[in-house]
Amino acid sequence: MNIMTMAAFAAKGEQPEILFWVGCAGSFDDRYKSVTLAICKILDKVGMSFAVLGTEESCTGDPARRAGNDFLFQMQAMSNIEVLNGYGIKKIVTACPHCFNTIKNEYPILGGNYEVIHHSELLQELLNQGKINLQGGGEFKGKKITYHDSCYLGRANNIYDAPREVLEALDISLVEMKRSKSKGLCCGAGGGQMFKEPEKGNKDINVERTEEAIETGATTIATACPFCMTMMSDGVKNKEKEASIAVMDLAELVAKFM
């Protein structure tokens, strides 16, 4: 599979159908790189022409803004907007709810106007259009899966159904946690928490959430956000359940069954 950059497209005088915004975790985090590759694989298989920014991409600025440093956020945002506008980008898919929220909601006022979708929405669309055909269950057959709502996808942007529809298309039984959808409990990473130690308390948020996921009896916890993935994986480790419970992104699950 050949992953092309925007620069390469521009050199040929062509425009891809969609820009895949990989994000920092998708670029650097060893675990999340496999989600990035899964998305590329899916796009490649369905024959959608896409590009990435490669080394021209930089952080959207989300962690800076949520941590209260709006200068740094706007510096990042404005230089990203210059790059995106320079290439005349119209449509973007992100693999991260934080990138998604920032580019979709917070870039327009700074001059960046694009149609932005999250990869769960893209997957839902491709499934609905029949472009992705999933083979039945295999190793997952009859097993339970639970979906952990990302705050920045769910409450922040009201996306609850797309990820669930994607999971329902797989031959697995979806079970909900006690707190789900708009009542879903945060994994603990948002608001810049990913980049600092938690404040003093009596429990880690990700452990609380993981316990809830374990209660469902699911053998897979599906996530749609790199931070959630890290937090839930750490939670599973903390509970010493790595052998029996997997934490996987929607895209990885879909790629597996294509």
Binding site: L185, C186, G188, P198, E199, K200, G201, N202, K203, D204, I205, E208, R209
Partner: peptide
């Protein structure tokens, strides 16, 4: 989530 897990917030 902060309050539930015993933080001051």
């Amino acid at each position: 989530p902060a309050n539930i897990t015993g933080k001051k917030l």
